[in-house]
Design a protein around this nucleic acid. Structure first.
Lengths: 208, 208
DNA sequence: AGATAAATCAAACTATCGTTCGGTTTAAAA
DNA sequence: TTTTAAACCGAACGATAGTTTGATTTATCT
C-alpha cells in the first residue's frame, strides 16, 4: 500500500472523531473538479490524478462514476437538510419570525460559502438526467422553508398575501446565487445574508 | 439537394421577412438538446439527427461545434440586451421607478418563458470554460439593471440604502429562476412577474 | 518470517466523441 | 442538355471516455 497519509497529521483524537477515509478523499476530488471545471472535465482519470492514483483503482472504492456523483449529491443536500431541520427545532417556540428567518438564511448562506461548499455547488453543473435523481430530496428541503414562511403568515408577522408555493422557490432560488453576488460585489457572507433578509421583509421601496 | 422545406410554408412574405436559414435550424436543434439533456448530450450526431442530416454535414455550415455554441450564446444575450435597452429608451423621461421596474421585469420574464427561451437557458448548462466567454456581455446586461436601480435611488423612489453592486445580482439572480418557480407553483408568467416586483418593492414583512 | 487480505497498477477493451475528406446527390445556370 | 456549384453522405481518423482484469505491491496477522 502506498503511504497515503504521508505528511498528514494522524488526527490522534477521540474515538468518536470521524476519520477521513479514502472514499472521502475521492469524493472531495471529484466534487472539486466538477465545481471548478464542470462535469465533462470530471473524468475518472482526472479524479484519480488528484488523489495520486490511477483511474482503475477508483473501482476498488466505488462501483462506478455514477456512484461517486450520486454520493456527492446526497451528501450535500442531506447534510444541509439535517442542519436546517436541527436549527429550526432548536429555536424557542416563541421565537419571532424575523429571528427564524435570520437563522435559516444564515445557515444556508454559510453552507454555500463554507468549508464544504463544493458539495452544495456540484448540483448546478450536472446534466439534467442526474439532477432529476435528487429532486425529491431537494423538495424536502424546500418544504422546511415553506413551513418557516407558513409559520410567519399564521402569526401575522409575514406575507403580503403572496402565494407561498411561489414565494419559497423565488427566495430560495435567489439565495442560491449568493456566491455570485459576493464575487460581483466583494461583500461578505454576513452582508449578503443581511441584505437578503431585510430586502425580503421590507423591500426597497421608499418608506410610507 | 434534399427537400429541406418539404411541408413547410414558404413564408411568402415581404422582402424584409427574415428567412429561416439552415444555420438557424441547426442552432435551434443544438440549443434544444442542451437545454433538455445537457451539454454532454449535445453531440454533433445528435444535433444532425434533429435536423435530418449526418454529423459531417454540419461542418458545411459551421466551422466547429464551438462555433455553434458560441453563436447560440451570443444570440441569446445580445437580443436580450438589445430589447431591454430599447425598452428603457422608449420610456418617457418622467416615468416612475415602479413602471420602469415593471417593464424591465416583464421583458426579462417573458424572454425566459417565451418562444426563444431556449437561448436564454443554454448558458447554465455549459461547462465553466465556455461560460466565461460570455461573461463580459452578461455584465453589460447587468449594467442596464444597475442603471435602472440607480435611477430609482437618485429620485428617492427606491432603496433602503442597499448596495446596488449587491442588490442587482441578488435580484437578477433570483429572477433567472423564474421557470423553476412556475414549474413548482403552476403560476403564470404574469403572476411571477408581479410577485417579483411587489416583493422587491415592499417585502413580505407585516405593514407598519 | 511467512501467509493472507487490502489496495493499487498497467494495460487493454469497447464505445463514442469531434472532425476530416473524397465522393455523391441535388438545384440552379448556361 | 450539359455544366457548375451548393449541400449532403459515408466512412474513416485519432483521441479519449468509462470500465474490466490479471498481476503486483503494500499492510496486517499469526
Amino acid at each position: 500500500m502506498k503511504a497515503r497519509n504521508a505528511g498528514k497529521p494522524v488526527a490522534a483524537g477521540s474515538a468518536t472523531t470521524k476519520q477521513r477515509t479514502i472514499r472521502d478523499e475521492i469524493l472531495d476530488a471529484a466534487a472539486e473538479i466538477i465545481v471548478r471545471e464542470g462535469y465533462d472535465a470530471c473524468t475518472m482519470r482526472a479524479v484519480a490524478a488528484l488523489v495520486d492514483m490511477k483511474a482503475g483503482s477508483l473501482y476498488y472504492h466505488f462501483r462506478s462514476k455514477d456512484e461517486i456523483v450520486e454520493e456527492i449529491l446526497n451528501q450535500g443536500i442531506e447534510t444541509l437538510y439535517a442542519r436546517l431541520a436541527e436549527t429550526m427545532r432548536g429555536l424557542p417556540k416563541e421565537a419571532p419570525f424575523a429571528d427564524r428567518l435570520s437563522a435559516a438564511v444564515g445557515l444556508h448562506v454559510s453552507s454555500l460559502v463554507g468549508k464544504d461548499q463544493k458539495y452544495m455547488h456540484v448540483y448546478e453543473h450536472l446534466p439534467p438526467i442526474i439532477k432529476r435523481r435528487s429532486r425529491k430530496m431537494r423538495e424536502k428541503y424546500a418544504q422546511l422553508w415553506h413551513d418557516l414562511f407558513a409559520g410567519g403568515v399564521a402569526s401575522g408577522e409575514a406575507s403580503n398575501g403572496q402565494d407561498l408555493q411561489l414565494l419559497v422557490p423565488y427566495f430560495l432560488g435567489g439565495l442560491n446565487r449568493v456566491p455570485e453576488w459576493m464575487r460581483a460585489s466583494g461583500a461578505s457572507s454576513e452582508q449578503v445574508a443581511a441584505l437578503a433578509i431585510t430586502t425580503l421583509l421590507d423591500g426597497i421601496g421608499a418608506k410610507r
